[in-house]
């Protein structure tokens, strides 16, 4: 009992990482917002909270998959922007939607193969992908605008967004905690974190294939987030995903996922996403300037990263 409690508090000796503390802080923050901030209780605001959280949750889930294997994807924000740009092309939804996912899958595949087969560092591979995609997006859609297929608009309207939330959580749970794939991601990441890269493959785990799959899923999640965002803002926007890389990494890290790999949990990521959303929502209601919000977000990431000590120096 005491051991379990200590584990919750420190996140040590647990594969789920330190999620209890952020949960507590998040709950306290939520209570404070409920009592202390006037506009917060408003049902409309609470529904807004959900729709604000969904894109970050989707991107965060994908980001978490690659972080679990000790990687990082800096191209997710560009994938989101690219997706909205593709959806704003003047074509029927049944053409655009499959295109979006095909493109996202291909992006993830290239990232994954470059990392596992061509031995390119994940940061470099996904960073260059980010730049390339930004270029492609600007060609497709130089400035925000365009028309989004009706089906996309309808699927995100009003209460339907709750369905997206449920689906995201279910798929995330299935991938991370409800499948062999998820367990194998933990195994691969555990080996990487312990500086024994090939341990999982010794047990017969197809490590390269699973890592590639993690990057493909990561891009795909980002594409789903792009579809959702396009539906919400009813147009394409080449800059909509601009800070999502950092935001998603921050959210995942807040939830206790170790950036070295092998430690993390779905509920941790959800907590991280909710905290980020509450923070943004609360600060918006309190008329805190967007610039100060950026400063606060950056500081949170800095503190979390500094708290996660590692053996290795550098990247």
């Amino acid at each position: 009992m005491i051991v379990t409690f200590r584990r919750l508090l420190t996140g040590q000796d647990s594969r789920q990482g330190l999620w209890f503390l952020p949960l507590t802080i998040g709950c306290l923050g939520f209570l404070w917002l409920l009592i202390g901030v006037d506009g917060f209780r408003n049902p409309q605001n609470l529904l807004n909270l959900i729709t604000q959280a969904i894109p970050l949750l989707l991107v965060g889930l994908g980001q978490m998959l690659v972080i679990l294997v000790g990687g990082l994807d800096l191209s997710v924000g560009s994938v989101v922007s690219l997706t909205t740009a593709i959806l704003a092309l003047d074509a029927p939804g049944y053409v655009l939607l499959p295109t979006v996912f095909l493109v996202a899958g291909l992006i993830g595949l290239i990232n994954g193969l470059a990392i596992t087969r061509l031995n390119v560092h994940p940061i470099i591979a996904t960073l260059s992908m980010q730049i390339i995609l930004r270029g492609i997006t600007l060609i497709l859609l130089p400035t925000a605008g365009g028309v989004i297929p009706e089906i996309v608009k309808q699927s995100v309207s009003g209460r339907l967004s709750v369905l997206w939330l449920a689906a995201a959580v279910f798929v995330g749970w299935k991938l991370i905690h409800g499948s062999r794939f998820g367990l194998h991601l933990f195994a691969i990441g555990g080996g990487v974190a312990a500086d024994r890269q090939d341990t999982a493959s010794k047990y017969g785990v197809a490590d390269r294939r699973n890592v590639v799959l993690a990057y493909v899923l990561c891009s795909t999640f980002a594409a789903v987030a792009g579809v959702f965002l396009a539906g919400r803002i009813v147009s394409g926007d080449p800059n909509v995903g601009l800070l999502l890389e950092i935001d998603s990494i921050t959210a995942v890290a807040i939830g206790g996922t170790q950036l070295t790999g092998g430690v993390g949990s779905l509920h941790g990521t959800i907590i991280g996403v909710v905290m980020m959303t509450l923070l943004a929502n609360g600060m918006n209601l309190g008329n805190v300037s967007a610039f100060v919000q950026t400063i606060i977000k950056g500081s949170i990431l800095l503190v979390i990263v500094a708290l996660q000590s590692r053996k290795k120096i550098g990247l």
Binding site: L72, I123, L243, I246, I249, A253, L259, S289, F291, V292, Q293, T294, I295, K297, G298, S299, L301, L302, V305, A306, Q308, S309, R310, K311, K312, I313, G314, L315
Partner: peptide, 21 residues
């Protein structure tokens, strides 16, 4: 021994925010 990518990204974010503020 924090991750260099994230430390410097975070510092960058903070600095951009500070200037804009």
């Amino acid at each position: 021994r924090a991750s260099a990518v994230l430390v410097t990204l975070a510092v960058n974010t903070i600095l951009v925010g500070v200037v804009q503020f």
